[in-house]
Amino acid sequence: MPDVDAVVLDIEGTTSATGFVVDVLYPYSRSRFGALLARRGDDPDVARAVGQVRELIGAPDADAARVEEVLNTWLDEDRKATPLKTLQGLIWSEGFARGDLASHFYEDVLPALRRWHAAGIALHVYSSGSVAAQRAWFAAGPEGDLLPLVDGLYDTENAGPKQEADSYRRITTALGVPAGRTLFLSDRTGELDAARTAGWRTVGVRRPGEPYYEHGVGDHPEARAFDEIDLSTRSTP
């Protein structure tokens, strides 16, 4: 796949195992929502997220207990609600910083990211997880701090929903890279479709054992691992 100047990465199911997120990170955040709301309720990021929860449920006076209940319900439903992701990100950031948590990457991912970075390809992340969670995730990588490999981080708050083409158009504007020279890697067909509608190139990452494996990747090019994606041949725009 030549003529790519930027690669935008999904995380869950693409660079990293969904099972790790669901079985490790979700319970970790669930057990700490109440403490976060009590301890950091005046923190601007926490207060903004709580206000968003209240707005989404139509309960402007909802107390911390009600907010925590809603967060746990959304977690059970695997909702991609922005305030849920914001608060999870804050909790995970603390966990990574304390050494309670360490991020997971499939073994084919980091060699490919280092190879692409060395070739001058800009690497970015677009995940439903908050920017704070993404930053903590890459900072606590299995081989140390991986943030130097990453040029930009995007989530549903600064870009928009992942199955809407306008979100990818916003990222294109932020990247300053033509849409046709930007490659998106994801395991979800709806996201791949939205990115292609915005003019991006796409590859569906289809890993055995992941929840979306049986769904396939529609008519997008498919890879089972990052080492199947060859970005070695590039031309000048």
Rank of each mutant, 00 (worst) to 15 (best):
M1P: 10
V4A: 12
V7D: 02
V8D: 08
L9F: 15
I11Q: 01
G13P: 00
T15N: 04
S16D: 05
A17V: 05
Y26F: 15
Y26D: 12
S29C: 14
R32V: 05
L36Q: 09
L37P: 02
A38R: 15
A38C: 09
D42N: 12
D43F: 01
D45G: 06
V46R: 11
Q52G: 07
Q52W: 11
V53C: 08
R54W: 11
R54F: 09
I57F: 04
G58Y: 03
A62W: 06
D63H: 06
A64F: 03
A64L: 14
V67C: 03
L71D: 07
N72R: 15
T73I: 12
W74C: 06
W74Q: 09
L75Q: 15
D76H: 11
D76N: 14
E77R: 15
E77H: 11
E77M: 14
E77T: 11
P83W: 05
L84G: 07
K85G: 07
Q88Y: 07
Q88I: 10
Q88E: 13
I91E: 04
I91W: 05
E94Y: 03
R98T: 06
D100L: 05
E107S: 14
E107M: 00
D108S: 06
P111N: 04
R114V: 05
A119E: 13
A119F: 01
G120F: 06
A122S: 14
A122W: 00
L123Y: 07
L123I: 12
Y126S: 03
Y126F: 15
G129K: 01
G129T: 00
S130M: 10
R135E: 11
R135G: 00
W137H: 13
W137N: 01
A140M: 06
A140P: 01
E143H: 03
D145I: 06
L146K: 01
L146A: 11
L146Y: 01
D151P: 00
D151V: 00
Y154S: 01
N158L: 04
N158E: 04
K162P: 07
Q163F: 12
D166E: 15
T172F: 01
T172L: 01
T173D: 14
G176H: 10
G176M: 10
V177D: 10
T182A: 13
T182M: 08
F184K: 02
L185T: 12
S186K: 06
D187E: 06
L192N: 05
D193A: 12
A195V: 04
R196W: 02
R196F: 00
T197V: 15
A198M: 08
A198T: 03
A198I: 04
G199C: 09
G199Q: 09
G199L: 05
R201I: 04
R201G: 04
V205Y: 05
G216A: 11
A223K: 10
A223T: 10
R224D: 12
A225I: 02
F226I: 11
D230N: 11
D230A: 08
D230V: 07
L231Q: 07
L231W: 03
S232N: 03
